[in-house]
Amino acid sequence: MAKTKSAKAAKIRNNIIVHTVLAILAIIWVFPVLWVVMTSFRAEKGSYVSTFFPQSFTFDNYIKLFTDTTVLNFPQMFMNTLIIAICSCILSSFYVLSASYCLSRVRFRMRKPYMNMAMVLGLFPGFMSMIAVYFILKAVGLSEGSMIRLALILCYSGSAALGFQIAKGFFDTTPYAVDEAALIDGCTRGQIFRKITLPLSKPIVIYTVLTAFIGPWVDFIFAKVICRANSDQYTVAIGLWKMLEKEYIDSWYTCFAAGAVIISIPIALLFLKLQKYYVDGMAGAVKG
């Protein structure tokens, strides 16, 4: 009796320790997120504050972000990013899904070489080719004015098909017997892809579409290299980064926080919704 009691006590003690540690860690992880939300409602300007919590709250930062277009035109950046995101989302989803389907279901001669090539290309520093991409875009006349948008769409979607692993892992786990049955019934491969594989793989289709859509919102360095000084073509990410530069930080810091909150909310919602697919896709990919 005494033994079970002490075991129970030990269990409770362990539980308390575990939960306390988890609580402390959770605070560390949530704290910066909370802080940026607080900053976005802060009435005092400037990046350096003497108090940790804001003295007074206001909604002005959000209003300024969408109305003050003289220095940093956030609404336009928002529209630029939206257009780029929609177009590149359509293109790269198509590329990724079709490449994954072929690699998973069709046994063609270039299959293994393609997969090896994707792996080798993945080992190069991604940034290395960026400068060269800029030269190429310049040579074909896509580096000036509104052509930059097209250039960014092509760049974001262009190499998407190298990231086929998760979708392919998913297709690999869907039973091939269904395909065979359809082939016997006289389906073409194209019909199987459209009418069987895609509907059966809804989670991975949603996952691919949404990750492709998020890409342009969170990419910063590629857009910066390609946009250079064309401030009317900036995407949201460059805009936010600009707001933290020395000449803007004092008047724009709280607006930066507001902008960060605005683009984080939809992405966070998508991500929280999608994490299940993320976990499943990952588990499928690791299993091979």
Partner: peptide, 25 residues
Amino acid sequence: FDENIHRLLMTPPMFFITVLTILPL
């Protein structure tokens, strides 16, 4: 659209990979 579907589906991505990834590298 049938047994050679990989040619149809892999060509556009391959084209862009060649132009925007392999050529720059």
